Lab assay of single mutants.
Amino acid sequence: MKTQEELTEIVRDHFSDMGEAATLYVQVYESSLESLVGGVIFEDGRHYTFVYENEDLVYE
């Protein structure tokens, strides 16, 4: 099982292909040891929320 830090790095790496991230945040109260819930805000103003669970990243 991966730590939240490892899950955060996986998510950060995925979003790095989409541009320069200004902020990546984790909603600790919705996350667990198995999943990471949060969002990313890019330098150009785009904002996505995400759920990373079971090696699957879903974002909108």
Rank of each mutant, 00 (worst) to 15 (best):
M1S: 10
M1N: 10
M1Q: 09
M1I: 10
M1E: 06
K2V: 05
K2M: 08
K2I: 08
T3H: 04
T3N: 06
Q4H: 06
Q4R: 10
Q4P: 06
E6I: 08
E6R: 07
E6M: 09
E6T: 06
L7I: 09
L7S: 01
L7H: 02
T8V: 14
T8M: 15
T8W: 13
E9T: 10
E9R: 14
E9Y: 05
E9I: 11
V11F: 06
R12N: 04
R12K: 08
R12F: 07
R12Y: 06
D13C: 15
D13H: 14
H14V: 09
F15D: 01
F15T: 01
S16F: 09
D17V: 13
D17I: 13
D17C: 15
M18L: 09
G19E: 04
G19P: 03
G19F: 10
G19I: 08
G19N: 05
G19T: 05
G19K: 04
E20K: 13
E20C: 15
A21M: 15
A22M: 14
A22T: 10
T23I: 14
T23H: 12
L24W: 10
L24R: 01
L24H: 01
Y25M: 05
Y25F: 05
Y25N: 03
Y25V: 07
V26D: 02
V26Y: 06
V26Q: 00
Q27V: 15
Q27C: 15
V28K: 08
V28M: 11
V28N: 08
V28A: 11
Y29W: 09
Y29L: 05
Y29R: 00
Y29T: 03
Y29P: 01
Y29F: 10
E30V: 13
E30S: 10
S31N: 06
S31A: 13
S31Y: 11
S31E: 11
S31K: 08
S32E: 11
S32T: 09
S32Q: 08
S32I: 08
L33Q: 09
E34A: 11
E34T: 09
S35P: 01
S35Q: 12
L36G: 01
L36D: 00
L36N: 01
V37E: 03
G38S: 02
G38C: 13
G38V: 12
G39K: 08
G39E: 13
G39N: 05
G39M: 14
G39C: 15
V40K: 01
V40W: 06
I41C: 13
F42V: 00
F42R: 01
E43I: 11
D44T: 04
D44P: 02
D44W: 13
D44Y: 10
G45Q: 01
G45R: 01
R46W: 11
R46A: 04
R46Y: 04
Y48H: 00
Y48Q: 00
Y48N: 01
Y48A: 00
Y48D: 00
T49Y: 11
T49R: 08
F50K: 00
F50S: 00
V51R: 07
V51E: 02
V51L: 05
V51S: 06
Y52I: 06
E53H: 09
E53N: 07
E53P: 02
E53V: 12
E53K: 11
N54R: 06
N54P: 03
E55P: 03
E55M: 10
D56E: 14
D56L: 15
D56S: 14
L57K: 02
L57C: 11
L57R: 01
L57S: 02
V58E: 05
V58S: 09
V58H: 10
V58I: 10
V58L: 10
V58T: 10
Y59C: 12
Y59D: 02
Y59Q: 02
E60L: 10
E60R: 08
E60K: 09
